[in-house]
């Protein structure tokens, strides 16, 4: 197993924490993981991305270079920038609330998820990243939904546990949306 996922979007869309959750959930399952952020001026408001690798073997380079198995794109510039990094037949989950254009490549399993609308539907547009993560969990076999929810519960801890239900609801919307969209492919 060697899954290479790029999470990308605007700063503030929660792409870093989305990637971290994939990594930490996989780590809890005793898999090898690496999480590599973009850093520098990009951190301060521009586009943000992280490379997440999950494997059952020792991970070599933490950099994903033309061999991504999945891209989660939260906005158009991110999709356009990182589409080229995907392997043929790889998974592209894109935020169709903000991305009207279709992906340029036709050799991908492209799944549109209206993340912002669905997040607003559960009460807070800020959890659009969790909607996307739900879709990712549903479309890949890297981590299980229950494990992600467990990880989120742990992350928020006792002091912020009131945020768990909102995030869980968003994750479940993502799972449903992915199922529906994928059925149409």
């Amino acid at each position: 197993m060697l899954e290479k996922t790029i999470c990308a979007g605007f700063g503030g869309q929660g792409v870093m924490s989305m990637g971290r959750l994939i990594a930490s959930t996989a780590m809890a399952r005793n898999l090898e993981v690496s999480w590599l952020p973009s850093y520098g001026p990009e951190m301060r408001g521009g586009t943000a991305n992280c490379h997440v690798i999950v494997s059952d073997k020792l991970i070599g380079s933490p950099v994903i270079y033309h061999d991504a198995t999945c891209l989660i794109a939260m906005n158009l510039p991110s999709m356009q920038k990182f589409e080229a990094e995907l392997l043929p037949g790889a998974l592209l989950i894109y935020n169709s609330s903000l991305i009207e254009a279709a992906p340029r490549r036709e050799d991908l399993r492209a799944v549109p998820v209206p993340a912002n609308e669905l997040a607003a539907g559960v009460g807070n547009p800020k959890v659009a990243n969790m909607v996307m993560l739900g879709a990712f969990v549903s479309l890949t076999s890297i981590v299980e939904l229950d494990d992600v929810i467990l990880e989120i519960t742990e992350m928020f801890g006792v002091s912020k546990k009131q945020f768990v239900p909102l995030n869980e609801a968003a994750l479940r919307r993502g799972v449903e949306a992915a199922g529906a969209a994928y059925a149409q492919l």
Binding site: R20, V33, S34, Y39
Partner: peptide, 10 residues
């Protein structure tokens, strides 16, 4: 290097 500093691993 920046990679060792910035990346996350267990």
């Amino acid at each position: 290097d920046g990679m060792i500093g910035q990346m996350m691993e267990p």
